[in-house]
Structure formats: structure tokens, C-alpha cells
């Protein structure tokens, strides 16, 4: 769920120090490879992805400031513990601590409501608000297009600060939009394939038997999700933890966790091959962007600038 998507968080405090660490980590991991290789063979690492995100957000902020607006960089992981389990909860410790994550979700919504960009935009006059969004998203000029694996064509302006930042970072803006949106759609397609696989169904039956032995009569993890949303279980955090722990224990005991992980990897490879052009393009653009991102962050770090301290215009 993380690749090609954006989890956003306000970058707070010690920006320079954190970027130095990110840069160091990214380049240590790159030491054994050629960053400009024509056919990259692996996904970039988490540290490298964070580096790209940091650089992109710096570019967006700079662009917005040049247009007379304030903008607060956002990050991809506002709450590190906020995880997604697309098939079944398979982490007993996590389940014991967070149940089904209702509290984490509540915190996410609080962060959203208090996000500086939203508060800032909401406080602008209607005209300035429209200008802020137009400056960020763009309007007019050319249109990016993304043809998606599961069908459909997405469009996006190429004229806003978001696009300008991505053009500077990835160079091939149209290619990046296509590759990124395709990856997002491919992830959903992969999950569809996993749950449609007979091996997933067989493991789910084993899981359900395990759950019944634990006193929980659910036929699938999806059944639990439905109950969480439609029954009194929704407002019973202690019961949620009990149930989540049982789900995770049975995921391991029944083999559903192992089957899910195996099928997830399998279909990721299958679809990467099926959509090779988009897959390779994304990997290549990301890898080629890493030196640029490193240099941007290095310059910002050397100059002592951070997003929090950079001069910004007033509303």
C-alpha cells in the first residue's frame, strides 16, 4: 500500500538532521549499485523513498513560496504504527496493542483536521483559497494522462507546483504520472488476484476453523471488518483487541498469513511482468531522481534552511 502512494505528515523539528540521516542511509544503500543503470533490478529502499519525498516536498514549498503562498512539507508516514493489513491481521503484538487500529485512525483524523496546510487554506479568503489550490494543482496548460491497468484514464494538470516539483525531480513528468498511477492501480489488482486465488480461499477456511475453536464464528477476515462497521463491536475496544489477537494468532496457525504473503509476492511479480513498461519506468525514474534529490537536500542542509525556518509569505 505504501509504494506509489502518499502518506502525509507534517515534517516537524530537526529537519536538517533527519535529512542528513536519510541521505546517508540512501547513499550507503546505493554504494554497491549504479544509480543510473538503465534497467534497475530492485525497488528503491524505504530510506531512498523518504529521500525522494523530502526533496519533492522542498521543491513544492519553494514553488509555492515563489508564488506568494505558504506551504508546509508533508511526509508519507504521519503515524509509523498506522499499518495496513490488506488480507488479514498477522502481527499478534500489533493486534494486542492496537486491536484493529481504531485509536490510530482517530489520531490520523486529528492530524488531518489540524494539518497546517488545511488550516492555512481554510483561513484564506475565497479568492486566495482558489489561487492557492490552482497554484498547487495547476490549471490550464497541458494535461498529464495515465492509462490504468484496471481500465480508465486519469488526468492531471502539468502546471501546478506539485507537477513542477515532480518534473524537476523526475524530469519525465508525463512518464512519472503514468508510472505512479499505474503502480497504485496495480496494487489493487494484485490484491484482487490474491483473494481470488484458490489457495487463499483454502487457507481462509483453515483460519475460520481456528477462529471457531477460539470462540469466534467468522468465515473470513472480511466478515470481521463488516461486523466492526455494522455491529456493537464497533464501540467495544476491549472486544476488538481480543478479536484482533485471535485473528492474528489464527492467521499464523492456519497458514493464512504465510499464504497471503506468498501470494502477494507471486502476483506482484506476475503483474510487474505483465505491466513491464510501467514497472521499469517507475524504477528507472526513481533511481535517476535519487542523485538530484540528494543534491537538493544537501544544499538545503548546507544552507541551514529548513521548511519551518524558510521565509514564507503571509496569507
Amino acid at each position: 500500500m505504501l509504494i506509489g502512494t502518499r502518506r502525509t505528515r507534517v515534517i516537524a523539528g530537526s529537519f536538517a538532521a533527519s535529512t542528513v540521516l536519510l541521505v546517508s542511509a540512501a547513499w550507503a544503500e546505493l554504494a554497491g549499485g549504479d544509480a543510473r543503470m538503465e534497467h534497475p533490478v530492485r525497488e528503491i529502499t524505504t530510506a531512498e523513498r523518504e529521500l525522494l519525498q523530502t526533496a519533492e516536498q522542498m521543491l513544492v514549498q519553494s514553488c509555492m513560496q515563489q508564488q506568494g503562498f505558504r506551504y508546509w512539507p508533508v511526509d508519507r508516514h504521519p503515524i509509523p504504527e498506522y499499518r495496513e493489513f490488506p488480507y488479514v491481521v498477522d502481527d499478534v503484538n500489533w493486534a494486542r496493542t492496537y486491536g484493529y487500529g481504531a485509536e490510530l485512525e482517530r489520531r490520523m483524523k486529528e492530524m488531518d483536521a489540524s494539518s497546517p496546510n488545511k488550516k492555512y487554506v481554510a483561513a484564506l479568503t475565497p479568492d486566495r483559497r482558489r489561487q492557492w489550490l490552482q497554484t498547487y494543482h495547476g490549471s490550464g496548460s497541458g494535461w498529464l494522462k495515465a492509462k490504468l491497468p484496471r481500465g480508465g484514464v486519469l488526468s492531471h494538470s502539468d502546471a501546478g507546483c506539485a507537477s513542477k516539483a515532480q518534473r524537476l525531480l523526475y524530469q519525465d513528468l508525463q512518464g512519472w504520472y503514468q508510472a505512479r498511477e499505474s503502480a497504485i492501480d496495480r496494487k489493487g489488482l494484485k490484491q484482487d488476484r490474491v483473494v481470488a486465488d484458490d489457495r487463499f480461499a483454502a487457507s481462509t477456511e483453515q483460519w475460520a476453523r481456528c477462529m471457531r475453536r477460539s470462540g469466534h464464528a467468522y468465515t473470513s477476515p472480511a466478515d470481521i471488518r463488516e461486523a466492526l462497521e455494522k455491529t456493537s463491536l464497533r464501540t467495544e475496544p476491549k472486544q476488538q483487541v481480543t478479536l484482533a489477537v485471535a485473528e492474528a494468532v489464527c492467521a499464523e496457525e492456519s497458514g493464512l498469513a504465510r499464504t497471503s504473503r506468498k501470494l502477494d509476492r507471486h502476483y506482484a511479480e506476475v503483474l510487474a511482468g505483465q505491466y513491464r513498461a510501467d514497472t521499469d519506468l517507475k524504477l528507472r525514474l526513481e533511481r535517476e531522481a535519487l542523485p538530484r534529490a540528494q543534491e537538493m537536500v544537501r544544499q538545503a542542509t548546507d544552507s541551514g534552511l529548513s521548511p519551518e525556518r524558510s521565509p514564507s509569505s503571509s496569507p
Binding site: 488479514v88 491481521v89 487500529g101 496494487k187 471488518r225 466492526l228
Partner: peptide
């Protein structure tokens, strides 16, 4: 509300 733990194709 509980998309955090089960997303995509299997959520009901």
C-alpha cells in the same frame, strides 16, 4: 473506519 487493518479487495 477500519480500513487501517484490512484494505482493498477483501474489505466488505
Amino acid at each position: 473506519k477500519f480500513r487501517i487493518v484490512l484494505t482493498g479487495a477483501v474489505a466488505a
